[in-house]
Design a protein around this nucleic acid. Structure first.
Lengths: 242, 242
DNA sequence: AAACATATTTTGGTATGATCAAAATACGAG
DNA sequence: CTCGTATTTTGATCATACCAAAATATGTTT
């Protein structure tokens, strides 16, 4: 298995750019380059490390591609501390392409259903008073927004977000954001009607009630129904555009 | 708002390298550059598109960073058709760093539990004869390997993999692979004993039986217990190394 | 003729230096 | 102090060159 005894720690055969990349990655990780700070000018890096600009650019490119810094075309790259969010952002492009083919969207949506069902069950079992309060809050906001398309959209997402947050696992809100980001484009084409808002609000209520009653099975049923409705609507749109 | 009349379709402000990147991405997507094919030499690309090598390199760099091609240091980059697997590979580095801090590993593990519980429940509800046969097959392989550490390890993973595959959703096997890849490093330090293998095999059996009995609740219980055991062992190791 | 060793050519990685346009900054007028 | 303009920085791109490793061609041995 092991190949040699070259002990430059990781892999010695790496290019200079990789080495620089690692240095910056470490600096970002350690906070020496705080979140939001701009990277030094390329030429400065060049002389500080005694390497060519080519290498510097490639390293920065890599940082950018991996989401460790945000680099708008002509601007100084800005540090973005890595998080699960940025990690998911990084693969956004690729995922988007993947979704375009075959059952892509359906598969991702199914994953979402799976996760949300699990969250609902978990909530029904474990949610504490505070969680439930927050959920209720969101539900009420949702209700007051039934006639305001934009706000309903927002509060709808928020209700779900709280479900993800209730898990207490910081990975899950990131997953939620990813679902939103990746599935949204398929949603927006959908004409929103107040009647649909009303329906969705009722679905949310059903989920909330099931959680309140500490009934995982009911929470699952309500969640499935809610998402199945949503899928129906999406699906109808997708069919039309084919 | 709108700046100019530069109509390079999408967003004109992109760098030359991005443009080239997109071209290659399209070629990969369309199969014009089939999976496994090496990219043309840099200098050839240079003259074909009339751009500088800098740009070519940056574009290739980006392809590499995003996982669309695989580029070992001194070798010609090789096309790797994007898939959920490669997408997850892409963020592997970052995720690994993220896991190192705080409750990272625990959080990812909890996600895994959540997903596998959902899979087990789903399997108990939906698994068809063929699925169950494959699972049984894996279970038997698992049993015969109890005294062979390496093979047990393999068959252990395979058992779980089949659970992920049974979902019929191609995203899930990719997720499984990601879990394995990201959590593995924390596992390997763990001394494996035949007695532990025996225990794990029994856990697998319990899950299998619950699915066979079409009992989602029992499938959930068995899965939770199995993974909780695994976590106990991991945790013990992590504690020691602190 | 096949296998192997060696000489050539190709090609990726890196370094320099230069140019251009846009961004950042300094500066001066109102 | 604010705003517009002149300077300076700086990112993006290009052209060229060199080196070492990889790919390939060539010749030698069995």
């Amino acid at each position: 298995m092991a190949s040699g005894s070259v002990e430059t720690q990781a892999d010695p055969g790496q290019r200079a750019a990789d080495e620089l990349f690692n240095k910056f990655e470490a600096m970002i990780q350690s906070g020496e380059l705080p979140d939001g700070a701009p990277l030094p000018p390329e030429r400065e890096i060049v002389e500080r490390y005694g390497i060519s600009r080519t290498v510097v650019r490639e390293a920065i490119l890599a940082l950018s591609n991996k989401g460790l810094v945000e680099a708008r075309p002509r601007f100084r790259p800005v540090v973005r501390k890595p998080s699960f969010d940025t990690a998911l952002d990084t693969i956004g492009n690729v995922v988007t392409r993947l979704l375009e083919q075959g059952e892509g969207v359906k598969n991702l949506f199914d994953m979402r259903v799976m996760v949300e069902v699990a969250l609902a069950r978990q909530a029904a079992t474990d949610a504490n008073r505070d969680d439930i309060y927050r959920l209720k809050q969101a539900l009420e906001e949702n209700e007051t927004a039934i006639n305001d398309m934009d706000r309903f959209f927002e509060t709808d997402i928020k209700f779900h977000r709280i479900m993800y947050e209730m898990s207490g696992n910081p990975i899950l809100p990131a997953v939620h954001r990813a679902y939103i980001t990746w599935l949204q484009p398929n949603w927006v084409k959908m004409p929103t009607l107040p009647s649909r808002n009303q329906l969705n609000f009722e679905s949310h209520t059903a989920i909330y009630n099931a959680i309140l009653m500490r009934d995982p099975d009911q929470a699952e049923v309500a969640t499935r129904k809610h998402l199945a409705d949503a899928w129906d609507q999406i699906n109808r749109i997708l069919m039309e555009s084919d």
